[in-house]
């Protein structure tokens, strides 16, 4: 039922990232040129500082870890503490970890069942 949706190229951010890459710790960890979209079922929500995380399992039973802003910032930008729960099906687009592990820096996260949208990093973010 659930499936990995697609792997898309990140033409939009590649140019910006190229200039920032040399001095960017977050970019050292996540590859702006390897943006993927994955669908899965949420297993855990870590709504916390310094980084919030969503763990979710895809159709192949791969457990993904997706990182986004601290909860103080999420709360101000509209992602409330109880918005997302284990069992929710989400579609996450993010920059994939350079080391190949199933980890993402969230660019967008949506819950198709009701159209809820979370908060991820801007496409051109270098922080």
């Amino acid at each position: 039922m659930m499936r990995k949706l697609c792997v898309i190229s990140a033409l939009g951010v590649a140019g910006i990232a190229a200039t920032a890459q040399a001095h960017h710790s977050f970019v050292r960890e996540y590859d702006p040129q390897n943006v993927v979209t994955v669908e899965g079922t949420v297993t855990e929500v870590w709504y916390q500082n310094p980084h919030s995380r969503v763990y979710f399992e895809d159709a192949d039973k791969v457990l993904w870890e997706a990182e986004t802003y601290p909860r103080n910032i999420l709360d101000r930008r509209g992602w409330k503490h109880d918005d997302l729960k284990p069992g929710d099906v989400v579609v996450v687009t993010g920059r994939r970890a350079r080391n190949g592990s199933p980890r993402l820096q969230i660019l967008s996260i949506v819950r198709p069942s009701d159209g809820w949208e979370g908060v991820g990093f801007e496409a051109d973010s270098i922080d």
């Binding site: 870590w46 916390q48 310094p50 763990y55 103080n72």
Partner: peptide
């Protein structure tokens, strides 16, 4: 706006049955 509390948490993910859950 109120200044929010900023509880900062360092923890490692423990997969499967040993996992923790919630808002940290």
């Amino acid at each position: 706006e109120e200044i929010k509390d900023y509880e900062c948490i360092v923890r490692e993910h423990v997969p499967a049955d040993g996992g923790s859950q919630g808002e940290g």
